[in-house]
Design a protein around this nucleic acid. Structure first.
Length: 485
RNA sequence: GGUCUCAUGGCCGAGCGGUUAGGCACCGGUCUGCAAAACCGUCUACAGCAGUUCGAAUCUGCUUGAGACCUCCA
């Protein structure tokens, strides 16, 4: 069974019902990381958000081919007014070869995906593995007259393209208005028009990676790899193309131009853009230095936070904000998420102990419907979470015998809670791993304290409690016995 | 400078013309040897000004403030 999913399409600025090109199948391409360094938390947010999308599509019953590329060819940067590629730069800094750099950070990236409980995409193709495909598309663009060769480099002829297509269709940019505003770029003199962009770049003598092409040795342009790989794995036209907001222009705009320029059609029906992770109201970015690494927050070594937060909490925190909104990371925010998520998981663990009655005093079907509706409406995880907390309240009230639930409804609710929390939101269900030697010790200590309490020996029991507290272990007494954490 | 987005209660964050978002904190209660924890309940905001409407956080205009993109960027 498939459900209607509506998605905000950046291309049209409207929510649209997803109608896959091939019934039951969804093709989704998401721009992945450039592996010249360890991805920071902001990068991760985008991938976590598309992991949510992936999970929702699967839940809706689609067979999904999820392609997320790995950019392992360094592209020319002009940030410091100098021309060098990001991966080559990192390689020189670390005294490694380019592919070592890429491999090293790819291993880390894969670890992070597991750490943050992301489902692996269907395929993660690399740019360097698809040089031939990129060359072929460039050739098509040249054949169609939308590119030109100069000094061993190939550029996209934006002016020519604009005669036949709408350059700026995605980003809403008007090239004419932009010309005077754009800052001077290096090698601009090679381009015929300021808005032209490189499809193939002639090699520099000190480039660490060089490929052969019909135009001489060089490197592929930044945008062409996505066109090549999305075409190869999903076809000339597919359903969803995603990426971070900051890729909308020029990267995605140029992808559209390349597809139109080579195949005469737009690549994706729906364009999705995930919004940025902010720190103090500003986009988390390398250059600003306001970033932290996914591992730092888990290990508590980030200077931005006093204490460590588990990946689950970070994921939950992110899920509380919609993917199209910016999200500010703060310690307070993470703490709130941690407590809230704890309450949610606690309620879930209560489910199998819940007494069932002959009838339900709450409309479980409506509740479960609200879960589905939330994610069907542009993957609205915050609404889903709000509705899950409604369920939490019901669960607790049932536990207190203030509401009732029928056996059938209890089964349905249990299944749904697990599905939406674990499978959709991607909260991992594994228990906190504790030192397995501590367990028996704690059992003993708790046992001793219980004995003291039975004898109303409050001095001893409180001494144990205070002692444990000093060691960072909190003792919680409840009707069902004593717990610790 | 150009293009665009956003401004919600103590904090974080939904909301897409009329109905309680939700979480955290606070406060009140239940439970408890005490404490903590847990659970229940309460708190009712929409930057400012004007307009449209029977009705606006939600639409329009202006003002102020913040951010993104225009250059590598998730």
């Amino acid at each position: 069974m498939e459900h209607k999913i509506s998605i905000y399409n950046s291309l049209t600025g409207k929510k649209e019902i997803l109608v896959p090109r091939n019934e039951h199948y969804v093709g989704m391409y998401v721009c992945g990381p450039t592996l010249y360094s360890e991805p920071h938390m902001g990068n991760m947010r985008t991938f976590i958000n598309f992991d949510l999308v992936f999970r929702c599509l699967l839940h809706a019953g689609y067979k999904v081919k999820y392609v997320r590329n790995i950019t392992d060819a360094g592209h020319i940067t002009n940030s410091a007014g100098q021309e060098e590629d990001s991966i080559g730069k990192a390689a020189r800094a670390e005294q490694l070869q380019s592919l070592e750099i890429v491999y090293k950070y790819n291993v880390k990236f894969q670890e992070l995906q597991r750490l943050y409980n992301m489902l692996p995409p269907s395929i993660e193709p690399t740019a360097t593995g698809h040089i031939q495909e990129q060359i072929e598309i460039i050739e098509k663009i040249l054949e169609n007259g939308y590119g030109y060769v100069i000094n061993g480099s190939v550029y996209f002829d934006t002016k020519k393209y604009m005669q036949d297509y709408n350059y700026g269709i995605l980003s809403g940019r008007k090239v004419e208005e932009q010309e005077n505003e754009t800052r001077a770029l290096n090698n601009q003199e090679e381009k015929r028009f300021f808005a032209d962009f490189a499809l193939w770049k002639k090699a520099n003598p000190d480039d660490m990676q060089i490929w052969r092409s019909p135009w001489g040795d060089g490197n592929p342009g930044w945008h062409i790899e996505c066109t090549a790989m999305s075409t190869k794995y999903l076809g000339k036209q597919f359903d969803i193309h995603g990426g971070g907001m900051d890729l909308k222009f020029p990267h995605h705009e140029d992808e559209i131009a390349q597809s139109c320029g080579s195949f005469g059609c737009q690549p994706a029906s729906i364009w999705m853009h995930a919004n940025m992770l902010n720190v103090n109201g500003q986009k988390m970015s390398k250059s600003l230095g306001n970033f932290f690494l996914p591992k730092e927050i888990v290990e508590g070594t980030s200077s931005l936070f006093q204490k460590p937060f588990p990946p689950n909490v970070i994921r939950f925190f992110m899920m509380q904000a919609h993917y199209r909104s910016t999200l500010d990371v703060t310690e307070k925010g993470l703490e709130a998420a941690e407590k809230g998520m704890g309450r949610l998981l606690e309620a879930i663990s209560l489910l199998n102990k819940l007494p069932s009655s002959t009838s339900s005093s709450v409309d479980i079907n409506a509740l479960l419907d609200s879960f589905d509706k939330a994610i069907q409406d542009d993957f609205n995880a915050p609404i889903l979470i709000a509705n899950l907390f409604e369920a939490v309240r019901y669960i607790n009230l049932i536990n207190d015998s203030k509401e009732t639930i029928s056996k059938d409804d209890l089964i349905k609710l249990t299944e749904a809670m697990s599905t939406f929390v674990y499978d959709i939101l991607g909260i991992s269900s594994e228990d906190k791993s504790q030192d397995n030697r501590l367990g028996p010790v704690m059992d003993l200590v708790i046992n001793l304290r219980d004995q003291a309490r039975e004898q109303k020996d409050w001095t001893t029991s409180d001494k144990i409690r205070d002692g444990l507290s000093a060691a960072g272990i909190i003792v919680k007494d409840s009707k069902d016995g004593t717990k610790w954490s």
